[in-house]
Amino acid sequence: MNNTPVTPKLRSEPIRGAMASRGLTSYDELAELLGLSRATVIRIMSGKQRPSQPFSSGVHVRLRLPYDLFLDHSEAMGVAA
């Protein structure tokens, strides 16, 4: 049995909606708000990198999004999508 934790996949649309409602127009602005590099935010938002804990926590706190709106745990829990 593999006990390696699986990081949930990102749902980017709720994040984009929260960005728009707060007047954030670019990933540069999101990166600054979250205290992360622009490159990291772009990789995560494009699906090339799974969301890190600092990214997820930042989105939850700074954009006030519940985790279950922007993180898809179905793959992490072994549920077919």
Rank of each mutant, 00 (worst) to 15 (best):
L33S: 06
R43L: 09
R38M: 03
M45C: 03
S46A: 11
I42E: 00
D28R: 13
F55G: 11
D28I: 06
R50T: 14
V61W: 04
V59K: 09
E32C: 01
L33Q: 09
T40W: 02
L33K: 07
V59T: 09
K48H: 09
G47M: 07
G47C: 06
Q53Y: 05
A31D: 09
S46D: 10
E32R: 01
S52H: 02
S56E: 00
A39W: 02
S57C: 02
S52G: 13
R38G: 04
V59L: 08
L33R: 08
I42N: 12
L30D: 05
V61C: 02
S26R: 03
S56C: 10
E29M: 05
I42T: 15
A39K: 08
R38E: 02
Q49G: 02
R50W: 02
R50Q: 12
S26Y: 00
H60V: 00
Y27D: 15
S46G: 04
I42L: 02
G35F: 01
I42H: 07
I44T: 14
V41Y: 04
L33V: 13
D28Q: 13
L34M: 07
L33P: 11
R50I: 03
L34W: 12
M45E: 01
S26Q: 05
A39C: 00
S52L: 08
Y27N: 15
Q49L: 14
V41P: 11
T40E: 15
D28S: 10
Y27T: 09
